[in-house]
């Protein structure tokens, strides 16, 4: 059978739906430890307690780019952070280089404040476009870091080489930095320059690891199932010519 994009998407969708209901109450089901998320949780907590400000950098572009999904993962993180830290002395601030993403970040924060019943404390400038191009966005975030008004940065979204401006400045200021990007070059430099890197597809696990809801956990489990389907497909695709050649 020829496995096409329709089959793949259909299978993913079916798994997402089924795993939203099946097996989610199994007490033995868990996810492996990822240290970056542990550190992130600490940073979120501390921003509540010590009045330090957490900067969530959502990336250079997002909504209509090839990495819109990473931007959505960043928004999930923002949502979870806002749920916890919106009421702190220095509420989390979201920065991005994509105005459409800025609007979504503002919506996310606005609704978090509503949920916490403090809508009057919401201000639209908590979600900012620090620049409208990748490097100017990074420059804006860099300026915020150099000004010393930010104590921790979580870079979750589409980041490429310009992210090094943010992550290396974080190191300079002693601010905690965590980074995850679907851009593999961006990932490589975040690996070398942040305190806690998120590798590969870990950036998409943000929601599941911060308990954003069963759909996030179901999608991670669906991802695992598909992973082995693909591994099988790779083995078959690679192995068949070999078998044909040898036999």
């Amino acid at each position: 059978m020829n496995f096409s994009a329709e089959h793949l998407i259909g299978l993913a969708l079916a798994l997402l739906i089924i795993l939203s209901f099946v097996g989610r109450d199994n007490p033995r089901r868990a996810f492996r430890s990822i240290k970056a998320f542990k550190e992130l949780r600490r940073s979120i907590e501390l921003s509540v307690e010590d009045g330090s400000q957490l900067q969530i950098s959502l990336g250079r572009d997002g909504v209509l780019g090839p990495h819109s999904a990473a931007a959505f993962a960043g928004l999930t993180l923002l949502n979870q952070v806002a749920n916890t830290a919106a009421d702190s002395d220095q509420p989390p601030i979201a920065t991005t280089g994509d105005p459409a993403l800025m609007l979504m970040a503002q919506d996310t924060l606005r609704h978090a404040y509503q949920r916490l019943e403090i809508p009057e404390h919401y201000h639209p400038l908590l979600g900012q476009a620090t620049g409208l191009t990748p490097f100017s966005y990074a420059s804006g975030s860099l300026a915020q870091l150099l000004d010393g008004s930010v104590s921790a940065s979580a870079l979750v979204g589409h980041h490429a080489e310009e992210a090094a401006l943010i992550s290396t400045a974080s190191g300079t200021r002693g601010a905690f930095s965590l980074g995850g990007s679907p851009d593999l070059s961006g990932q490589a430099l975040l690996f070398a320059s942040t305190d806690e890197p998120l590798l590969g597809e870990e950036v998409y696990a943000t929601g599941a690891y911060l308990d954003a809801g069963p759909a996030h956990q179901a999608s991670l489990r669906a991802q695992d199932v598909l992973r082995w389907v693909i591994i099988l497909a790779v083995l078959i695709t690679a192995g068949l010519p070999l078998l044909e050649g040898l036999l």
Partner: peptide, 26 residues
């Protein structure tokens, strides 16, 4: 009038629940 509505989640799957619960990891 939006401030008078207590729970309007941004994109949680269940606004009511998310609005009220402490995240599990916390």
């Amino acid at each position: 009038d939006e401030t008078s509505h207590p729970v309007v989640p941004a994109f949680s799957e269940d606004p009511e629940a998310l609005g009220a619960e402490m995240p599990g990891w916390l």
